[in-house]
Amino acid sequence: MRKNVVVKGAYGEANFGDDALMCTIENFFLTNGLGLNVDFCGSSSDYCHRLLRKSGYVDANDNKKATADVLIYGGGTQFFLFHSNKGGFYLRLFWKLLTDNPGLLIKKIRSKFSRKETVPAKKSVGLGLGLGPFNPENGKIEEVKTLVGQMDMLYVRDATSASYCKDWGYNVNEGADICYSSFLNYDKVIRKNGKDNHAGQKRRKIGVIVRDWKYENGGNEYQNALLRMVDEQKNAGYEFTFIIFSSLRDVEWKKIISENGYPCLEWDPFQNRIEQFMDRLNAFDGFITARYHGGVMAAVLNKPVVCIGIEPKLGILAEQVKGFRLWDMPFRADDLKQAMRVFDEQNFDCSPSVNSLRRKADEMFDSLHQYLCEL
């Protein structure tokens, strides 16, 4: 009898990063032909079936889910406890959905008030997870520790996440983000970057990947300084395009971009596929990003990046990829201009860092393959 595997993540939220994680993991199963029944599990969604080629998709709040033989926590930051400031964020999200997609709004309301249960499973695995940060005053941290401690195999994506597990007394393997792996299946030739490789080009094309921020850590204070820089520098050698990874989540930024008439590129999972959107990203010469997977994908494409430090994982990313710059709190304009000098480097090449991270990610999938073969 075929074993049942469920892969759980923040899927179904129309977020390019999480959608890329989902599709990359499915590529692993399609490539290896393990003879397993594979379902992905996330928010109620109408588009995930379109992105997935052969796997099933189930709503995380569906109480009729059968018990899985293995539950895989499939990448992303699934375990964290910030100080929250969600009221204004959810009010904006409510009005956005009420106007654009009332059917999805009804699903979200049902999901919010239904009893959320973990996927019933005999065993569990963590794959390329980012852990933290954790508010020590939040009592739910003990639930996180228990859940992580029950995993048969755990791979995290960075040293900071590994240190949490070691502090809790758990065995852990340090892998890398899932999207660095060969299973991303983006094999197109990546062109060289840097100032010397754009001779004759009047202005460098910079993608500005933004994100609404709903937590009380000062992360959203980058907004005004970033907008001033875009307005001041748009005729000084740069051509800026704002990029939205999640139209569902980045409601405030979409409003700002629309009202000011800024050029914008938006991930639409109902129209695009991962490879198509990667092609669009590859047309840029560099990125300023408030989204972690904006930096990961830029690294895969060998692009210079300024990471906006709205949360710790952007700083971790800037440390992992040699050549990336960090614009950190309190988000001073002069610090941003200094960080943007990365776009003026004669030759930019982060491929050694990416190759190292890809080896870690592929070794992580090798271990998963062996684990699943021994079920």
Rank of each mutant, 00 (worst) to 15 (best):
A14M: 15
S124C: 12
N138T: 05
E13K: 06
L34T: 08
D328K: 09
K86W: 01
W267Y: 10
V208K: 03
D349L: 01
D349T: 06
P330D: 09
P269M: 12
Y155Q: 04
F348R: 02
I274D: 01
V189I: 10
A10R: 08
G261C: 05
L34I: 11
T241K: 07
A299P: 06
L93A: 13
A298N: 07
L301F: 09
M22F: 10
D19L: 03
D187A: 09
K188M: 02
A121C: 06
N15K: 09
S353I: 07
L314E: 01
L131S: 05
V208N: 03
G309H: 06
I310E: 05
D250H: 08
N85G: 08
V321Y: 04
M151A: 03
K122N: 13
V208H: 03
K202C: 00
R204Y: 08
W327T: 08
K54E: 15
D344P: 08
F94Q: 08
K360P: 06
F270A: 15
R325I: 00
Q320P: 03
S351C: 12
F287C: 00
K123P: 02
N37Y: 05
Q370A: 15
V306L: 02
P102C: 14
F240E: 08
I308A: 08
G315P: 07
D187W: 00
E275G: 00
V230Q: 13
V148E: 15
V230H: 13
C48L: 10
D212I: 07
S181G: 11
W327P: 01
E13G: 03
S353L: 05
V172M: 02
S111W: 15
V70Y: 14
W168H: 09
C41P: 07
I274L: 13
L301V: 10
F242R: 00
N27M: 00
K65E: 13
C307I: 09
W213C: 05
E137G: 03
L129P: 07
G126C: 09
L147A: 11
A159E: 14
V58P: 08
